[in-house]
Design a protein around this nucleic acid. Structure first.
Length: 269
DNA sequence: CGCACCCCCTGCCGGC
DNA sequence: TGCCGGCAGGGGGTGC
């Protein structure tokens, strides 16, 4: 579910809890993609939340102890605030009681997510993160450089987190459709004009998605329980067999890198 | 090194 | 109604 726009939306929706003290932490389920550290509860209790940042699809909660709480939502995770004292829901794995009488909940049915704790430099998952596609470091020239000499399909390049950090399956499909580029094209085969167009479309689709609060395909919600609305603007994702919005050609579905890939054989070359 | 293929896990949907 | 296969927003490991 959560790609860069959804994670960024969650981050923004949680900014209001900054300044809270974490009073108590209860871990109900340690078996996530990586086990929740045994020492997390004791180490985090008593700390204040000083900032909430995002790197790629990871959320980083800066704590007053100097350590960082690292959260990844995987495919099905949610990270949200609710009043304390409510019944634990199915798949609530970690609950952080906050000093303002609310609690911060990590819920994840598929358990592909991550809740880790430690100094930021210690997180191996952040070591190989690529360029933030919304940051200043991402330019058309940079995308051009990334595509040179790489034989992999351009869609796989967009989704390679070691190159570009935060683009997932939905937004890779959408950006390529907007740019008129076929997902299977070899990255190194793209012409300069195509790379420039794709660059603009990547930024545009991510920005628009954030503005609309991300895409709620099934059960995605932000940190306040609100859905996103960008799914209403999806032009190609999950539309296999349906008419292209530009030319009415049936949308093609193929599998690339194990992920469903959608494109219009007429509009995308 | 790149890449195709699996796996992790639960839930949902469609077909029978 | 219920069972089964396929599929899902991510990421990591293996073997070629």
């Amino acid at each position: 579910m959560p790609e860069l726009p959804e994670v960024e939306t969650v981050r923004r929706s949680l900014l209001h809890i900054i300044g809270n003290r974490i009073d108590a932490v209860v871990v109900y389920e340690r078996r996530l993609r990586r086990p929740v550290p045994e020492e997390l509860a004791d180490a985090v209790a008593g700390c204040h939340i000083e900032a909430i940042e995002r790197r790629s699809k990871y959320l980083l909660c800066r704590l007053s102890s100097g350590a960082t709480l690292l959260v990844h939502l995987g495919m099905s995770g949610t990270f949200f605030v609710r009043p304390s004292g409510q019944l634990r829901q199915r798949h609530d794995h970690v609950i952080f009681g906050l000093s303002d009488g609310t609690e911060l909940v990590f819920n994840d049915p598929r358990r592909f997510g991550v809740v880790l704790f430690g100094p930021e430099s210690g997180f191996t998952e952040l070591a190989r993160i690529g360029i933030d596609p919304l940051g200043d470091g991402f330019t058309a020239a940079e995308l051009w450089t990334l595509t040179r000499g790489r034989s992999k399909p351009i869609k796989n390049l967009l989704m390679d987190q070691t190159l570009l950090a935060g683009i997932g399956n939905i937004y890779a499909n959408e950006a390529l459709f907007r740019a008129g580029v076929r997902p299977r094209r070899q990255a190194r085969g793209l012409r300069r004009i195509e790379v420039e167009r794709l660059f603009g479309c990547v930024r545009e689709v991510l920005r628009e998605a954030i503005e609309l609060g991300g895409s709620s395909i099934s059960d995605y919600r932000d940190g306040r329980g609100q859905p996103g609305y960008f799914q209403l603007r999806l032009q190609i994702y999950d539309r296999g067999g349906e008419p292209c919005i530009n030319c009415a050609t049936a949308v093609t579905r193929v599998v690339l890198g194990g992920r469903s890939t959608f494109y219009c054989a007429r509009c995308q070359r």
